[in-house]
Design a protein around this nucleic acid. Structure first.
Length: 426
RNA sequence: GGGGGGAUACCGAAGCGGUCAAACGGGACAGACUGUAAAUCUGUUGGCUCAUGCCUUCGGAGGUUCGAAUCCUCCUCCCCCCA
C-alpha cells in the first residue's frame, strides 16, 4: 500500500460518518481493496458538486486501491429522494443514455490511470435483467418497511407536504442492491458518498449482510458548502459544469479564483491533491498576505488542470490575462474568438462603421451591454465604457473600422468585466 | 351572504387635484478603494434628446376638471372581519 488513505481523509476533514472506523483502517491498510461511489446521470455533464465523490475515488485510486464509478442508469430512471423535498420528474430514456455516456467519459478522464484503471459501470446493466417478481423475492424481502420509513430521506418526505411515490420510496432498494452486486462481481467492500447518502449506504450494508453475510463498509463526506450556507458550485447564471462545452475552461478557472477566503481552505482540502504542508502554507498566506490570493490561484490551477488539462489551463490563464489586462489590439479573429468564446456577440453591418461610424452608445445597445441608449450614456459618462479595454468617456465617441481589434471584431466592455463582441458583417 | 381594506416603477413602501417620472429603503448598474474578495463611500436607476423639451407609466375601462397616481362610475384581482 502506498499510504494510509484513512489518515489522509482524516486530515482533510473528509470523513463525516464511518460505519466501522477501527476495522476499516486495518482492513484498508492490509492490502488493495475495492471501493465504489455512485453518480446520478441527471445531466449530460457532471458539475462541481460531483467533484467531491470523484476526488474521493481518485484518492483511493492513488493510494493503490481499486475504484469503481457507478453510473445510475437504472436508478436515474427513478430519482433519489435523498435531500429532495419533492417528487422528481423522470428523465426519458434517450436523454438518460446520452447522460450516462457523457458523464462516463468525464469520470474516465479524471480517473485515468494506466496501471490502476478505474472501472466504470452502469447499474442498468444488471438491474434490467431482473423481473419485478424476482426483485421483490430476492431483494425486497430483505427490507423491513419500518426500517425504511425511519431513514431521514424517507421520513422527511413523509412528514412534509409533498409525500413520496412508491417509485422513489423504492429507490433505496436499488442502490442497496448495487452495493451487493458490486460486492459479488468485483469484491467491492466499501461505498463512499456525500453525507446525504448515509441512509442508502447503510441500506446496502444491511442488505449485504442479509443476502451474503458480507461485512461491508461505508464512509460519507461532509457536504461542501459555502460559509454563507449556500451551495458551492452555483452562480447566478447557473451551475458550474465540468464539461468545457457547458462551462468554458475560463469560466471554470474564474469560478475558483473568485472563491471567498472563508471557503478557500475547505475547497483546497476537499477538492485538490495538494499535500498537507502546502495547504498549511496557503492557509497562512491567506491569513498574512491575503492580497496575494495564493489559495484561490492554487485552487483554480489544480482543478482546471485536472478537468481541462494543460491546454485548458493555458487558455484559461491567457483569457484571464486579456480580460483583466491592458488594451486589446492586433489579435486575430481566431485568438479573440477563443479568448472571448463565453462572451455574447452581436453583428453589425459593415457600412455602419464606415465614414462617421456609429455612436458608441448605440453600439452598446446593439451589443446588449445596455438596455437603452440612456443607460449606455449613463455608463459612458460615469466612466464605465471601454473599447478594446481602453476607457472611453466622450459622449459623442463613435466607432469606426479603425477600432477593430482583429479582422472583424471590436471588443466592448461595460464596467469591470462585462464584455461583448461586436462583429462586423458584410 | 354582510361589512371593511388594498392594488404605485425590478421588489417593498410613501404620495391622496397642479410644484409627480413620482419621497424613502432594498436590489441593480457605474465609479473610488481593494486581492478579479468582503466591507465601505460616491453617483445613477422609464424612453427619446446636448438640453429648456417631448413621449409612455401609478390594477383595467370610462368620466369629472384648464389640469388626475390623487375625485366619480363600472370591472378584475387580493387581504381582513362577521355569518
Amino acid at each position: 500500500m502506498n499510504q494510509d488513505i484513512l489518515a489522509e481523509l482524516d486530515w482533510r476533514g473528509l470523513v463525516y460518518q464511518n460505519t466501522d472506523e477501527e476495522n476499516l483502517q486495518h482492513w484498508l491498510n492490509a492490502e488493495p481493496r475495492t471501493v465504489y461511489a455512485g453518480f446520478d446521470p441527471t445531466s449530460v455533464s457532471l458539475h462541481v458538486g460531483n467533484l467531491m465523490p470523484l476526488m474521493m475515488l481518485r484518492r483511493f485510486q492513488k493510494a493503490g486501491h481499486k475504484v469503481i464509478a457507478l453510473i445510475g442508469g437504472a436508478t436515474g430512471m427513478i430519482g433519489d429522494p435523498s435531500g429532495k423535498s419533492a417528487e422528481r420528474n423522470l428523465l426519458d430514456e434517450n436523454q438518460l443514455r446520452c447522460n450516462v455516456e457523457g458523464i462516463g467519459q468525464q469520470i474516465k478522464s479524471v480517473l485515468a490511470d494506466e496501471e490502476n484503471p478505474a472501472i466504470v459501470v452502469n447499474n442498468y446493466d444488471w438491474i434490467k435483467t431482473f423481473s419485478y417478481i424476482e426483485f421483490l423475492r430476492d431483494v425486497g424481502k430483505n427490507f423491513p418497511v419500518n426500517v425504511m420509513m425511519a431513514k431521514d430521506s424517507i421520513k422527511s418526505r413523509l412528514d412534509g407536504e409533498s409525500g413520496i411515490s412508491y417509485t422513489e420510496f423504492s429507490y433505496m432498494l436499488l442502490q442497496a442492491y448495487d452495493f451487493v452486486h458490486l460486492h459479488q462481481a468485483f469484491d467491492c467492500y466499501l461505498q463512499v458518498g456525500g453525507s446525504d447518502q448515509w441512509g442508502n449506504i447503510t441500506a446496502g450494508i444491511d442488505l449485504g449482510r442479509r443476502m451474503c453475510s458480507a461485512k461491508l463498509f461505508g464512509i460519507t463526506n461532509p457536504l461542501l458548502t459555502k460559509a454563507d450556507g449556500t451551495k458551492m458550485g452555483k452562480t447566478e447564471s447557473g451551475a458550474i459544469w465540468l464539461s468545457g462545452e457547458k462551462t468554458s475552461p475560463y469560466q471554470f478557472y474564474q469560478y475558483w479564483i473568485n472563491v471567498d477566503d472563508a471557503d478557500a481552505g475547505q475547497c483546497l482540502r476537499f477538492l485538490t491533491e495538494l499535500d498537507e504542508s502546502t495547504i498549511g502554507e496557503l492557509d497562512r498566506s491567506r491569513e498574512n498576505e491575503p492580497h496575494l490570493n495564493a489559495s484561490q490561484k492554487s485552487l483554480a490551477e489544480e482543478l482546471t488542470q485536472l478537468i481541462h488539462g494543460d491546454s485548458g489551463l493555458a487558455s484559461a490563464k491567457k483569457a484571464t490575462e486579456i480580460f483583466f489586462g491592458a488594451e486589446i489590439s492586433d489579435l486575430s479573429d481566431a485568438e479573440l474568438g477563443h479568448i472571448f468564446n463565453d462572451v455574447p456577440s452581436a453583428e453589425i453591418p459593415q457600412d455602419q462603421l464606415q465614414g462617421e461610424g456609429i455612436l458608441l452608445t448605440e453600439a452598446f445597445v446593439v451589443a446588449g451591454l445596455a438596455k437603452s441608449k440612456g443607460e449606455a450614456r449613463r455608463t459612458l459618462t460615469q466612466g464605465g465604457a471601454y473599447v478594446n479595454n481602453r476607457r472611453e468617456s466622450a459622449a459623442d465617441r463613435k466607432l469606426t473600422l479603425g477600432d477593430l481589434a482583429s479582422e472583424t471584431n471590436i471588443v466592448l466592455r461595460s464596467g469591470k468585466k462585462k464584455y461583448a463582441l461586436l462583429r462586423v458583417a458584410e
